[in-house]
Nucleic acid binder design. Structure first.
Length: 260
DNA sequence: ATGTCGATACTTTATCGA
């Protein structure tokens, strides 16, 4: 089962790119972030025509996540537990049937957290604490689990072009990376790192300052696997060429293949 | 070289978020 994550930076602006890539790569499941659309306005029809079921958890203007799946959803749950007052649409979870096993998949849009002197940074850290608590709970099930999304976390210096430039940024601050390590320490496997130790592998290039042309990127889109998913990992690939398309998202898809 | 996008609104250009 091929499972991808992609921050598409606006579903309406990116529908043509998305459809092109779905035809090109034929993923079974796609976790989308930053759909920037309410559920009612999500253009599901052209995606359904390609054989996908569509589940969305959107909000007006910003954020919003979705899961596309060629296989039916057995259950879906929007929202990350732990704060009933949090109105931002950043989490959607579904259980999807494989050939032999069920896979629980979450589409995650972790808060950016900049500027760090605003309330946005403590919100990011609190959101990460909630994700740690929820992941811990899910891991108790000892089943295939894929936590996929835009984490807005640069895990290590080798995951960005110029670490000095990110030293004070919410994506790279020690407190951010400490919580990411705490999450990983629960027993999750970073799918990309399971297949390659190489530095300089990026999933995001800023629109500004010719970042794509200069390969000034960062790796912030991750698929984190439970032991039962990691055992079935066949491949993991960053689909970087779509960043060179017309009207691209600033992020590219990352896709794994699981034997489930 | 903070130079670009996408969405929004009492819109046609400023504001916000990334």
């Amino acid at each position: 089962m091929k499972i991808a994550t992609w921050n598409i930076n606006g579903i309406k602006a990116r529908l043509e790119n998305l459809v092109t890539w779905l035809k090109e790569a034929s993923p079974d499941v796609v976790c989308l972030q930053e759909i920037k659309s309410i559920d009612e306005n999500f253009p599901a029809a052209p995606i359904e025509e390609l054989g996908y079921n569509v589940a969305t958890h959107g909000q007006k203007g910003f954020n919003g996540v979705a899961i596309l799946s060629k296989r039916p959803f057995d259950e879906q749950s929007p929202r990350l537990p732990g704060d009933e007052t949090d109105g931002q649409a950043r989490y959607l979870e579904a259980v999807i049937a494989g050939d032999e096993n069920m896979v629980r998949v979450a589409s995650i849009y972790l808060p950016n957290g900049n500027p760090t002197n605003s309330q946005k940074y403590p919100y990011k850290l609190a959101w990460m604490e909630r994700l740690i608590a929820h992941a811990q709970r899910l891991l108790e099930d000892e089943e295939p689990l894929v936590l996929a999304g835009d984490y807005n976390v640069i895990p290590c210096p080798g995951d960005c072009y110029l670490p000095e430039a990110w030293a004070e940024d919410a994506l790279f601050l020690p407190q951010t990376r400490q919580r990411f390590r705490h999450l990983m320490g629960l027993g999750l496997t970073d799918a990309l790192r399971a297949v390659s130790p190489e530095e300089g592998l990026y999933t995001f290039w800023d629109y500004k300052a010719g970042a794509w042309r200069r390969n000034n990127g960062i790796r912030i889109d991750h698929l984190l696997l439970s032991p039962q998913a990691a055992d079935r990992l066949k491949s993991c690939e960053i689909i970087s060429h779509v960043r060179g398309w017309e009207r691209p998202s600033d992020h590219v898809p990352v896709m794994i293949d699981l034997a489930v």
